[in-house]
């Protein structure tokens, strides 16, 4: 069958708008979700048993259920919070809460991956626990965790597509709209796919660059 991309031209702004929506929702959810994720990790690893159990339950609940179901629940729960059924709010809250659970686990792995010997050296030098975390553990842990965090960013960007099912006006939603309007399904899927691929490839390259720049001391070594 003949593929004709020309019909897509008038819709290019719609597609780009969708891409932009996907991007900013991803970035906000990443920032807010990571911050929440650190708190979750600290809560889980902390000494207050009740808080630790609650955090663990939260993390396990999120990680063992699909994002789509989480979005449905938030979307339909919104009215009781006083917000009208609003896909953007639902997506922001959903992606943030979802991301938090995954980043909490990433931080846990990061902190636990720092060799015990470093902590002991800090102790032997007479440093207090808070000092040890701040000056000795934090930087190597962040470096170990960096690839996982940037990978999480890319996954989050791709996961934003799920918002289309609750009518979030992001890229996948735009793809389906264009497809239904022009019937140029293959063409628009190809273009949309390339847009996703392009952005995720860029994110990947940028994060590798960032890693070597931020953690110059670690080149060639593994902490």
């Amino acid at each position: 069958m003949a593929l004709y991309y020309g019909d897509l031209l008038p819709f290019s702004s719609l597609l780009l708008q969708g891409l932009w929506t996907a991007l900013y929702i991803t970035l906000i959810a990443m920032a807010a979700g990571s911050a929440l994720g650190v708190l979750l990790y600290l809560g889980k690893a902390g000494r207050v048993k009740l808080v630790s159990i609650l955090c663990t339950c939260y993390i396990e609940a999120i990680r063992n259920t699909p994002l789509l179901v989480q979005l449905y629940l938030i979307y339909f729960a919104l009215p009781s919070l006083g917000i009208n059924l609003n896909p953007i709010w639902a997506a922001l809250i959903g992606l943030t809460l979802n991301n938090a659970a995954y980043t909490a686990e990433i931080y846990r792995a990061g902190f636990e991956s720092v060799p015990k010997g470093l902590r002991e050296a800090g102790k032997a030098l007479g440093m207090k626990p808070a000092q040890i975390v701040r000056y000795i553990i934090l930087t190597p842990a962040t470096r170990n965790v960096f690839p996982a965090l940037t990978n999480q960013l890319i996954l989050l960007f791709l996961a934003s597509s799920i918002g289309s099912i609750i009518s979030l006006p992001e890229l996948t939603n735009a793809i389906m709209t264009v497809s239904n309007t022009t019937y140029r399904t293959i063409e628009v899927l190809t273009v949309g796919g390339l847009l996703y691929l392009g952005v995720s490839a860029l994110m990947s390259l940028a994060s590798k660059r960032a890693e070597t720049t931020l953690f110059r001391w670690a080149v060639g070594t593994h902490v």
Partner: peptide
């Protein structure tokens, strides 16, 4: 590098178009 949803759309909606 592309969302699973797009792959699902492609297989479900796109493939039947490629092979009428």
């Amino acid at each position: 590098g592309i969302p699973i949803l797009v792959i699902i759309f492609f297989i479900f909606f796109g493939v039947p178009l490629l092979f009428p």
